[in-house]
């Protein structure tokens, strides 16, 4: 009896020390996933997530402070990729899926001040001083940084119109699952 108690206690103490030692000795200084996640982010540092740029968001995601759905330009594709990377289930219901938006410039109001151009993280706005600016649809990530910079409110975010080529079948609604929720 005594022997059993002693031996288990000793074993516990020994293993505890071993674990404590290992935790200090092999401590990971920086989370290796931060860099990997950072590589997956759009890299535009648009700031829509509320974190200081894409590296900040990557650190937050790796630390579990931010959800994988934190990046609006990345959308669902990035969220699922991140969830797969982290081995967690992505709750996609929160993704703002009102569809991607892009900036448009009302030509009649634009005064050609070039402020939006300086702000665009992807150089998606073309134009020159005193010339009407225009947005290249393909390059716009919809970060919306340009909207606030415009002195005449000529820049607006507008949803990308759905075309036949981009239309996606909605998920069938299973009545049973709904009843469960």
């Amino acid at each position: 009896m005594i022997a059993a108690i002693l031996s288990v206690t000793l074993l516990g103490i020994a293993l505890g020390f071993a674990l404590g030692f290992a935790a200090r000795k092999f401590a990971v200084e920086t989370d290796a996933r931060v860099a990997e996640i950072g590589a997956m982010m759009p890299g535009t540092n648009c700031g829509q997530c509320g974190y200081p740029g894409c590296p900040g968001a990557a650190a937050a995601i790796a630390a579990g402070e931010a959800t994988v759905t934190v990046c609006p330009p990345g959308g669902k594709a990035l969220a699922t990729a991140l969830a797969a990377k982290l081995g967690i289930a992505a709750d996609l219901s929160g993704v703002s899926d009102e569809g991607p938006k892009i900036a448009t410039i009302a030509e009649e109001i634009c005064i050609g001040c070039c402020r939006c151009i300086k702000e665009c993280p992807t150089d998606a706005i073309v134009g020159a001083a005193k010339q009407i600016h225009a947005v290249m649809r393909e390059a716009c990530t919809g970060c919306g940084n340009c909207v606030d910079r415009c002195p005449t409110e000529a820049v607006k975010m507008e949803p990308v119109p759905v075309t036949l080529q981009h239309w996606v079948w909605p998920k069938p609604q299973a009545k049973v699952e709904q009843a469960w929720a």
Partner: peptide, 14 residues
């Protein structure tokens, strides 16, 4: 669910 289609009634597949 893709929000683009929210305005439309649920389409019926073949």
């Amino acid at each position: 669910m893709s929000g683009e289609s929210l305005s439309l009634a649920m389409p019926t597949a073949s």
